[in-house]
Write a protein that binds this DNA or RNA. Structure first.
Lengths: 218, 218
DNA sequence: GAATAAAGTTTCCTATTGGAAATTTTTGTT
DNA sequence: AACAAAAATTTCCAATAGGAAACTTTATTC
């Protein structure tokens, strides 16, 4: 093959490879923590653990051998489409792919929120105090709320969201409306667990505004 | 981060009126189209729920406005790199991005537990009352516990388990021991969020046994 | 309602990806 | 060791993503 005059010399290659290690920059706000590295390695691991050749993997995923090779060697950043084909073809679900890349499960994170020191977020019907708001990427979102609403009519429509929700009444008394059930009155100490996708709403029915704790799963 | 910028609004669910239906899967894991369609929509949802403009999002993620727009409108398939910047910049973890498609079970489950009516499960150090125990297959496990322990020595070893844990002190006062931090005293209303894999233990330090609420993610 | 500003989309161009085929590396056989 | 076969990598080029700026749409103000 050509040697001295080729525009892409071996030297260039080496240099490129080195730079590959940390391709996060753009000094802007994004916290580009180095979560990168893993993907290619991970894919290779999985492929090998299934005892597949690139050829086979190519057949199953619909991606070219060459493309797979490049992905495994971190030479390219596959498009989302490609990632999906990969995941489908190799029978891995995407979260799994990133599970390792993301970070180890046995972290030692801890966040403490003193009473009343959460980040407050008011709405017409509730006054929410986000707890543990320092910690990001949580699996659950806890918040303590004061139920301002005094009538079901305060709600233009059902409140809905992804995930599941746990509710505990801390003080006062509320009426708990849900889309598929009769309303129920809950007092301090009563709790409920329900699907967030089901419409729901709370109304204070005690002298003072009731206080509740919510934990939502993501 | 974590300041006066748009408060994390998982709470702005009010505006999340529609849950899209209609995903035609052909059962097998072969077709990638299904999830593909979701990505843009999902990103847009998330961006809006954080009350961000494309401009803002661009600043945070380091991706161009135009690129973000194209992604949201499914005009391009972002590279993995781009997806990562997205996830970092918008503070979402990647699995969450992909979670949509399969989560189409907008069930309407609900379980109510009256104060003191949970299923009790005593241990030497705690007296646990499982809440919502009627409901199985939950993503979270809530329980209210009385902290019997009076000394750290009551614990033969650290308590550890999978997932993450949210802790709220309901009454009394506890000392919160963790594997990687100095012990902290918590009073009624104080809360903490931490990784279950990190050793932890509670000890009552008030006159009466303290009462706490725990929610563990699975 | 026109004028202005802000948010979002499209265009145009460069940089990068993805695939077919050539090349190199690895593995197995005599 | 030499050869052949299989697997992996690299090259080259067409197709596509990403970014800057032009443009269109949607709010906001006078």
């Amino acid at each position: 093959m050509s040697d001295q005059e080729a525009p892409y010399s071996v030297l260039d290659k080496e240099r490129q490879k080195e730079m590959e290690g940390s391709l996060d920059d753009n000094g802007s706000a994004a916290d580009s923590r180095v979560t990168e590295l893993q993907l290619g390695k991970r894919v290779k691991e999985i492929r090998l653990s299934h005892n597949l050749t690139l050829e086979e993997a190519s057949r199953r995923t619909g991606l070219a051998r060459s493309t797979l090779s490049k992905i495994e060697n971190e030479q390219i950043s596959p498009t989302f489409q490609a990632v999906q084909k990969l995941a489908n073809g190799l029978n891995i679900d995407i979260p799994q792919l990133f599970a390792t890349a993301k970070e180890s499960r046995c972290a030692g994170r801890r966040d403490i929120t003193r009473a009343g020191q959460g980040r407050v977020h008011p709405t017409p019907t509730y006054e929410h105090e986000m707890l543990a708001s320092q910690l990001t990427n949580k699996q659950m979102l806890p918040y303590r709320s004061i139920v301002r609403s005094r009538s079901f009519d305060d709600y233009p429509s059902w409140v809905r969201h992804d995930g599941e929700e746990f509710l505990l009444v801390l003080s006062g008394k509320v009426r708990f409306y849900t889309e598929f059930y009769e309303p129920v009155d809950l007092e301090a100490g009563d709790s409920s667990y329900y699907d967030g996708g089901m419409g729901h709403a709370l109304v204070s029915i005690s002298e003072e505004d009731a206080e509740v704790l919510w934990v939502t799963s993501t």
